[in-house]
Amino acid sequence: MEGRRSLKIVVCVRRVPDTAARIRIASDGKSIDTSDAEFVINPYEEYALEQAVQLKEKHGGEVTVVTLGPEKTTQVIMKALALGADKAVHLKVDKIPEDPGSIARAIANELKGSEFDVLLFGKKGVDDDNQQVGPMVAELLGIPCITQIVKLDVSDGRGVAHREVEGGSITVETTLPAAFTAEKDLTVPRYASLRELVAARKKPIIVKDVQLRALSLEIISVQNPPPRPPGKIVGKGVDAVPTLVKLLHEEAKVI
């Protein structure tokens, strides 16, 4: 295998409401009304996308963004293209389904038969917090997948990644093609310049309507979390410390 060969990289990104956005339960009681939320690229996929662009800068090659989402996802796709992706595939659906398996199958169908070396995901979407799509797509494609990575090096058809786990980190080596899911500290995402934002408009976006299969995982209801009982200010400065310890022992019973 030649020492330097250019890489085909695919990054799957998800459109999510900004994490500071107000979330309201929709009138059907089983979905979320995001009508006044701002939407962004899922933060974990910003780390993944940055990793993809850095790999391209180092090895040469091409970065394709794949996203499954509604019509309005275009705005997120433009951002990804401005951040360094070369082209995008938009798998168009009315709404992102609540079943990660259904998302994973649509993405795997798209990727089946296409050639790539590195397939990147964020470790989870900050909206539904499922943390499933990356390894599911990898299993469907029959390729290795290393999840929750904080470091990735690629050379000679191999990838070496560090996974962050409880109490430490694990180094895993794999042959390519392989999938990886990004943890927060994988990279420091860059900002897109105005020039890049303009240039993004000329990059190709392939739009495909996809059919999702019946859901295996279904939301039956959405509730507000129970409110925490109101807290109290114990006092000011060091004088309050003995009272705090007493309360933790006698009232809260946690010590």
């Binding site: 994490t19 979330i23 339960i25 909206d127 539904d128 995982l217 279904e218 039956i220 959405v222 979390p225």
Partner: peptide
């Protein structure tokens, strides 16, 4: 959604 809601879900 960042703990803003609780979902009740069913595996079919």
């Amino acid at each position: 959604y960042a703990g803003k809601v609780l979902l009740r879900v069913k595996v079919n």
